[in-house]
């Protein structure tokens, strides 16, 4: 076919919506509204900080291609904005137990079910599979899996949910005794923080068949922080 001169517009820089946050809400968070700013909790700040940083750098990268052409300088290597979210952000999401703790190592939690069932990890639709131990007889739908940012080993003969909410480096954690509601004793439920085979601290939770139903907690403290730095919550169902 003879060469035809075509007039084709440049493709757009983006090709997908940005679903991470909404301008209205994010903008209001940084608006000149004293009451809003004052009400921001510590966790808020970290969350907004990261959102803002990604927003700024992504906008910059998007404009990079345009800018490159506008000046006589060769400019950047002309990369348009990253349209699809890199895999690493998925991991970010998995271990976003504490955005303020910059120095926590980030990796998927390993869980050892007492029954020896194969450790199925990954996603099933919207749900993260394999972050808690099921007893083999449990047929109920998965309860809330909460990703932890510390290696977690759960050894249990009952259906449990375990979650860890804490800040600070794992190395600095001290774990208190496990207690039931209103300080009652926690028979059959224990949690321990000890170095694992590779030297890193591992949180081990054990639940015996004799454990009663209920919610048990163990407080995490740090030498340099006043008051509790977090809590391990074990819910026996």
């Amino acid at each position: 076919m003879p060469r035809v001169r075509r007039n084709t517009p440049r493709p757009p820089a983006r090709s997908a919506p940005d679903r991470r946050f909404v301008r209205g809400e994010a903008a209001r968070a940084t608006a000149t509204d004293p009451s809003a700013a004052r009400a921001a909790s510590p966790q808020d700040v970290g969350y907004e900080a990261i959102n803002g940083a990604y927003r700024v750098i992504d906008e910059y990268l998007r404009q990079g291609q345009k800018v490159a052409g506008e000046l006589w300088l060769p400019g950047t290597d002309g990369r348009p904005g990253i349209a699809d979210v890199p895999r690493v952000v998925e991991r970010f999401m998995q271990s976003a137990g504490d955005l303020g703790a910059a120095w926590l190592d980030l990796f998927a939690a390993g869980v050892t079910p007492a029954s020896g069932k194969p450790d199925a990890t990954g996603t099933a639709g919207p749900f993260r599979v394999g972050r808690r131990a099921d007893s083999p007889t449990s047929g109920s739908p998965a309860a809330a899996p909460v990703a932890s940012a510390v290696p977690l080993v759960v050894s249990t003969a009952r259906p449990v949910d375990v979650s860890v909410d804490a800040s600070g480096p794992v190395e600095s954690w001290s774990l208190g005794a496990v207690a039931g509601a209103r300080g009652s004793a926690a028979t059959g439920v224990s949690a321990r923080l000890a170095p694992g085979p590779d030297g890193r601290a591992v949180l081990t939770v054990k639940v015996a068949a004799t454990a009663k139903r209920g919610t048990f907690t163990a407080t995490i403290t740090r030498p340099d922080a006043e008051g509790p730095a977090g809590v391990v919550t074990i819910r026996v169902r």
């Binding site: 700040v45 970290g46 900080a49």
Partner: peptide, 12 residues
Amino acid sequence: RHAHALAGAALH
């Protein structure tokens, strides 16, 4: 806290 969060993002 902002700085910590950004350092965390860098680690990511």
